[in-house]
Simulated scan of single mutants.
Amino acid sequence: MNPDPRRRLLVIGIGAGDPDHLTLAAVKAIGRADVFFVLGKGPEKSSLTDLRRRMLDEHARPPFRVVEAEDPWRDRAQEGRSGYTAAVHDWRSRRADVYERLIRDELEPGRTGALLVWGDPALYDSTLGILAEVEERGTVAFDTEVVPGVSSVSALAARHRITLNQVGRPVRITPARRLREEGLDDADVVVMLDAGESFTEVAGDGVWIYWGAYVGTPDEILVSGRLPDVAERISRLRAEARARHGWIMDTYLLRTFDGPVGGGADGSADGASGRAPSV
């Protein structure tokens, strides 16, 4: 008789895209799993699934299984906070249906399953909330362990060679729709999930942007500089990248300086070479 009949589920943060961002804890966790659950996001994002596969080829211990399922469609056309919230809750509930089925039907009691989550599972990722909903349903019992990962926010700061905070000042992390509503305050602002290029609506000559797309991957694009100087260029790069790949995954930091801002001859730069004053 198996001394531990409960199912175990590992939620493993795998970093922003660079396979070298896997922590030792993540590598060890991958080696412990018997079954890996992968939700596909369509052919245009097959490169994300391929990267997960390469990680498993390198770090998973045979014999293991990979079980794929289709990620439920999400309505992204809803306007307003209430419509957006309702659409997210609907999508999460349908995703919980998928996880519930996978855990119940594909993970035997006493075995360990794993979900490989981009970035860090605790930052702007729905996996833990969805698994909590599955647990609340009470249809299948499992224990969850979370392995933190390198977030896209940490990777962005590292690639631009900056700190996320200035001395004695706070940092706010927000989705782009809240940036439109609330604007900038006394905090530096990290903006995520910006499909509508909210940075183009931010005014101020003293605002700098540190932007990155596909951070940590071979397709990485980085731009930094005074926001008025580089906003148009970032918009063009985003459009070109989306057309080329079929999708884009980007984030950025907006920083306001009280004094003069340095940098290149035109106040902007590609990559991590555009430097504002030390903080």
Score class of each variant (00 low, 15 high):
residue 265 A to D: 14
residue 34 D to E: 09
residue 274 G to N: 15
residue 121 P to L: 13
residue 232 E to S: 15
residue 5 P to H: 05
residue 233 R to V: 13
residue 176 A to D: 11
residue 238 R to G: 02
residue 18 D to L: 10
residue 158 A to S: 14
residue 82 S to T: 04
residue 186 D to C: 01
residue 191 V to S: 07
residue 66 V to T: 14
residue 129 G to K: 10
residue 3 P to N: 08
residue 89 H to S: 08
residue 169 R to D: 03
residue 5 P to M: 07
residue 243 A to M: 04
residue 57 D to V: 06
residue 231 A to D: 14
residue 92 R to L: 10
residue 226 R to K: 15
residue 74 R to S: 09
residue 104 R to A: 15
residue 204 G to R: 10
residue 268 S to L: 08
residue 175 P to S: 13
residue 11 V to K: 04
residue 226 R to A: 14
residue 54 R to V: 06
residue 16 A to T: 07
residue 63 P to S: 09
residue 156 L to F: 02
residue 211 W to I: 03
residue 273 S to P: 01
residue 256 T to G: 03
residue 142 F to Q: 00
residue 156 L to I: 01
residue 247 W to T: 09
residue 259 G to P: 02
residue 243 A to R: 11
residue 53 R to N: 10
residue 29 A to Q: 11
residue 114 A to S: 04
residue 80 G to W: 09
residue 77 A to Y: 05
residue 43 P to W: 05
residue 263 G to Q: 11
residue 170 P to H: 06
residue 217 T to A: 10
residue 139 T to V: 10
residue 235 S to L: 13
residue 241 A to F: 02
residue 221 I to V: 15
residue 165 N to W: 00
residue 40 G to I: 01
residue 64 F to C: 06
residue 210 Y to K: 00
residue 19 P to D: 13
residue 194 D to E: 14
residue 177 R to M: 14
residue 60 A to N: 10
residue 153 V to T: 06
residue 67 V to C: 11
residue 251 T to E: 11
residue 259 G to W: 04
residue 36 F to T: 00
residue 42 G to L: 12
residue 150 V to K: 03
residue 254 L to K: 04
residue 269 A to Y: 04
residue 75 D to Y: 11
residue 101 R to C: 02
residue 206 G to D: 15
residue 101 R to A: 12
residue 62 P to N: 14
residue 203 A to T: 14
residue 202 V to M: 12
residue 66 V to E: 15
residue 54 R to Y: 07
residue 11 V to S: 07
residue 137 R to L: 10
residue 198 S to I: 05
residue 126 S to R: 04
residue 263 G to L: 08
residue 3 P to V: 12
residue 145 E to M: 01
residue 88 V to R: 13
residue 192 M to D: 07
residue 94 R to N: 13
residue 154 S to R: 02
residue 36 F to A: 06
residue 25 A to M: 10
residue 126 S to V: 11
residue 111 R to N: 10
residue 222 L to Q: 05
residue 249 M to W: 12
residue 33 A to N: 13
residue 67 V to G: 02
residue 59 H to Q: 09
residue 106 E to Q: 13
residue 148 P to N: 06
residue 162 I to Y: 02
residue 53 R to H: 10
residue 108 E to F: 04
residue 112 T to Q: 06
residue 131 L to Y: 00
residue 119 G to W: 01
residue 195 A to D: 13
residue 158 A to W: 00
residue 108 E to W: 05
residue 20 D to F: 04
residue 212 G to C: 08
residue 170 P to G: 10
residue 83 G to Y: 08
residue 257 F to V: 08
residue 246 G to F: 03
residue 72 P to C: 05
residue 216 G to E: 08
residue 256 T to H: 11
residue 149 G to D: 04
residue 254 L to C: 10
residue 82 S to C: 01
residue 142 F to C: 01
